[in-house]
């Protein structure tokens, strides 16, 4: 509320008081609903597997131990996946940003004749696509299936993000700056690099973050195009560990109690793996959260 003064001038009615109380209670309840599952993953990964199994771990970790993390560190596939994901995220985001800027800038120049036509050419792909198999066949014919390149080439640019950047160039950078630079002898490329891009840092940051998050979380591309184990990104490896329950060690020659212990450890291992996959996000989330929110707003007013 912008103006709390006028709110206070009037006596709150009985109904409003009840509303306020119920509302606060509702928000606190929602807070718990949102945070508890995430918190549970954290405490379960740090607890004694048998305590998790018995349902004793609800608020705080019980029987604190780091076995799950030790087991995870020893599992090589996770590290290969991690390395691949970092690589794909860095290279992919760079490629995304270059493509987006190279596409958005000309489309934002009013003296660029074919801009209307080209914009339709790009926007049409948002509503109509060839679908899975035709895209797959193109990739296959180009020899891109089962290569690292496939991970960054599919979805090298999002038209939606390009439109956001384009409307920023169009509406937030004064046309006079361009005229002045051209008068001073700069060409379009110099103007873009020296004037327009530095002024567009906020929108580039927002779009870059969305791209990076997309690459970090990407599972679909690997499912369709990558079979080679050494090229698989973290999310793909995670799915094998977490959902398909790939057995990490042979459990055949163990006693029943040992097997039970192993199975329980495997469950906790899953919690620690989730933490590992989310850790980079968790660390930066509080700082970059506002940029993502900004991104929603920018998208909402796009013209």
């Amino acid at each position: 509320m912008k103006n709390n003064l006028s709110e206070k001038k009037f006596k709150r009615s009985y109904g409003d008081k009840i509303f306020d109380i119920v509302n606060v209670l509702l928000m606190v309840a929602l807070l718990i609903v949102f945070i508890w599952p995430l918190w549970f993953v954290v405490i379960a990964s740090l607890s004694d597997p048998s305590q998790v199994y018995l349902g004793n771990v609800l608020v705080l970790p019980k029987g604190f131990r780091l076995d799950a993390y030790k087991e995870m560190f020893a599992y090589e596939r996770i590290w290969i996946g991690y390395g691949n994901t970092v690589l794909y995220t860095v290279v992919g985001t760079l490629l995304n940003l270059i493509m987006t800027i190279c596409c958005a800038y000309p489309l934002s120049r009013k003296n660029f004749k074919p801009r209307k036509v080209l914009q339709w050419v790009f926007m049409f792909t948002m509503y109509f696509s060839g679908g899975l198999i035709p895209s797959y066949l193109v990739m296959k014919n180009l020899g891109l299936v089962n290569t690292r390149a496939a991970m960054v080439i599919t979805g090298a640019m999002s038209v939606y993000n390009m439109l956001i950047v384009r409307s920023y160039f169009l509406n937030s950078i004064p046309e006079e700056l361009n005229e002045a630079s051209i008068l001073d002898g700069a060409n379009e490329a110099q103007y873009l690099i020296k004037v327009a891009l530095p002024l567009s840092k906020p929108v580039i940051a927002v779009v870059g973050l969305y791209y990076a998050l997309g690459h970090w979380n990407d599972f679909y591309t690997a499912l369709i195009y990558i079979n080679e184990r050494n090229y698989q990104p973290l999310q793909y490896v995670l799915r094998e560990i977490l959902i398909l329950s790939e057995t990490i060690e042979s459990i055949m020659q163990l006693s029943p109690e040992e097997i039970m212990r192993k199975l329980q450890l495997q469950q906790t291992l899953k919690y620690s793996t989730i933490i590992a996959a989310c850790l980079p996000m968790l660390c930066v989330y509080p700082f970059i959260q506002k940029y993502f929110v900004k991104g929603v707003m920018v998208g909402a007013v796009k013209g």
Binding site: N111, G130, P134, L137, M157
Partner: peptide, 26 residues
């Protein structure tokens, strides 16, 4: 505007190969 064309042509080529060719593929 040759610089602008130079910038946008690779992007356009990408979309022709990876979006419009599959559209023909339907």
């Amino acid at each position: 505007n040759w610089i602008l064309y130079l910038m946008i042509v690779p992007v356009l080529a990408y979309f022709i190969i990876f979006s419009y060719v599959p559209m023909y593929g339907v």
